[in-house]
Design a protein around this nucleic acid. Structure first.
Lengths: 226, 226, 226, 226
DNA sequence: CATGAATGAGTGTTCATTCAT
DNA sequence: TATGAATGAACACTCATTCAT
């Protein structure tokens, strides 16, 4: 059996209820990759089977259908998508702005480390269908938004943050900026002459740049200081 | 024959080289709509033919292939995507910050009025293929970026703008925020109890909110004033 | 276009509403043949396409689905399945027993000339599914039964027929005997050393034998004479 | 181990050569049921395995293949299909017509009590393939026919039966009538308003009706009396 | 210029069967 | 003996495209 915690240990993991076998994990990850690159309809089950180096029939065997496989991708990822907000909220020693900084870094990390999954989410958000996945995304976003609202609220109550903050718009900028960086990273590399930087190094580069940029912006957005 | 200039006269149009017949325009617009909703692979040529109320064979007949049809969608739209920057640059009376404001509004307008096309662009950016479309998008973004750099440069030279500005990151935030608003507008409506607002009204609502939010952020990002 | 009336002129034809093209007729007849021999599930659309010498895709193109094709087989045949009863009922010159004789011959003829379709009907009757076809068969049988009841009634009223006649059981014997002859004709040939009789000749042999046998039985069943 | 004799003790059983385990019996009976309802191709081995509550692999494991399973169904049933004729022939006290009556009831009983198997037989008779099953059916019918011929012969020699009797046609009517009743029993119920009669009761109803109807017909067919 | 008919490759899925244990 | 996993072929059907007119 595949060790979930070890394989993805760079992000804090909350264990999934569903246990998947090694082969199932392989299929899910192959699917995640190809759904990200080609989209749901663009990636055929044969493509996925080939990528995962398994027989096509195994996909139906394990997941029932292509759609159910997509749901499995979501189930596996969304379980780990809950932000650190819950923990941050309970932390009394950290000042609100610092909490926001941690939050930004958490978002950036998650997007960068799970680019493929996020590409799928971006795509799926646009499809006008009332699928299980659409509902899962909606629910995930709503839960996150509420947690963040509580955090901002606390900052306002203690006088650190300004009064008139549109949290939804703020989050739109946070998520949008990171998403845009992910989707256009090829352009970013080209424009900054970073074409030949190693993937890992480039990820750290993005991570740092985004973190500084967003911290800077959010500080100005939330507080009155310079 | 369809009058291009008249039909899309809310944005300054630079004429395309290629002339399309009414029927071709109908196909392109049906394709744009369905590609936006369902994705390239999710939308079949039969779907598009049905939407455009023409015979399936016409698509191959007019455009050669489904892929070429997508290129036609891009050709028709990208031609009108050049920003007002060129005009702004030559305008000597307007202060730099005001120019940036005009730019922001231009971006917001374009994204909102051509949501369908932008959804396609967001999707296509993610596909890791060196297609004609990928090159078209890259070229468009590069051209826009350079114009904006010149504009920011001018602001820095006259002392209105700060010295250390990462224009690429700034643009990432601009484009990302607007894109994110577009792709998650359903969520936005739901969260702000705007489910039943008429589409037109909602577009103006987004337009205003985004404009204020982005102007506010960019002012802080670019200048030292409060 | 295929001339329906000419091609099947050995049985009185009531024109179908639906017009089929030559190719559609070819597909329907290939389907009829293979459904009869192999059953609905046993006959693949590829088999049928090969038998009809057309591309597999044409079946979906023309009929929508394999099931709809089966329905087309039924539509084409059931339209001609109405017995001569209606005509017989109006005929005042023919005595009731003679009418029954005509009816028997009509049944025998129909079964023998449309063996393939009848094999399908026998099979489909057994499948426990509430399909359109099941309903079509039920309806056809009910209509026929009612007409025959009227005919028997008339015979009883004029005193030619006995009073206690179970028409349903009588029809069960009529249909059952002919069906059984059709389904076990191979055995019949073998047992009567008719293996090498030509098909046409054998059909006439069956026709005659069945007619005499059934007339004889029904005379005894219906009347008091010897 | 399953006790064959006990389980089907309503008909005299001649032991099969092959001994089947409980699990094998369960599979065979599940197969018989589903083959009857859905046909050979319509019933998947997974269906059968599920119905028998065993692992799919067991079917290949025990019987080698789906086709061999069908043969096992036949082997298990045909062994018990030999009629009472042999016993009847040796009985000197019973007059020929009474023997025929016993024979009719025996047929009716067998068909009604083993409807599922008979549905399979009806279907398999129609398949134009020289399979083991086809040969088994042929052989069974031939053996039965010969026994009956001897019985009829005896009746003719003692002067009870008429001289010109086509035994094959007579058997066609016997088997055909009972088969037709079985395959169209749903129609029979509907037409006689017996939809809600309990299955057991309905079987007894059919049994009685068929017995009287067939005895009546056969008496007229075989003898000169009224 | 336009289109209904036709095609072959591809789709997701299910099949009976076999494998490894 | 027994079984979950696995396989490759087949399934019905849809695809983008081309053909004949």
């Amino acid at each position: 059996m595949f060790n979930f915690k070890q394989a993805f240990n760079f992000v804090p993991v909350i264990d999934s209820e569903t246990e998947y076998s090694d082969k199932q994990i392989a299929i899910i990850m192959a699917a995640e990759k190809l759904f990200a690159i080609k989209g749901f309809d663009g990636a055929s089950v044969r493509d996925i089977a080939h990528e995962a180096d398994i027989n096509v029939a195994m996909i139906s065997y394990y997941f029932g259908s292509k759609e159910k496989l997509m749901e499995a991708v979501f189930e596996m990822r969304t379980i780990k998508m809950r932000l650190k907000v819950e923990t941050l909220l309970q932390n009394t020693s950290l000042p609100p702005l610092q909490k926001v900084y941690v939050l930004i870094d958490d978002y950036v990390d998650k997007f960068i480390h799970q680019q493929e999954f996020h590409k799928i989410m971006i795509r799926e958000q646009m499809i006008e269908k009332d699928t299980l996945i659409a509902r899962l995304i909606h629910q995930l976003k709503k839960r996150n938004l509420e947690s963040i609202k509580t955090l901002i609220d606390a900052g306002q109550k203690c006088g650190d943050f300004k009064a008139d903050i549109d949290v939804v718009l703020m989050m739109t900028t946070l998520v949008g900026t990171v998403s845009q960086m992910i989707t256009s990273q090829h352009f970013y590399r080209s424009v900054n002459q970073l074409e030949y930087m190693a993937e890992i190094e480039f990820q750290q580069h993005m991570r740092k740049k985004l973190s500084i940029h967003l911290r800077n912006m959010f500080k100005k957005l939330l507080t009155n200081e310079n």
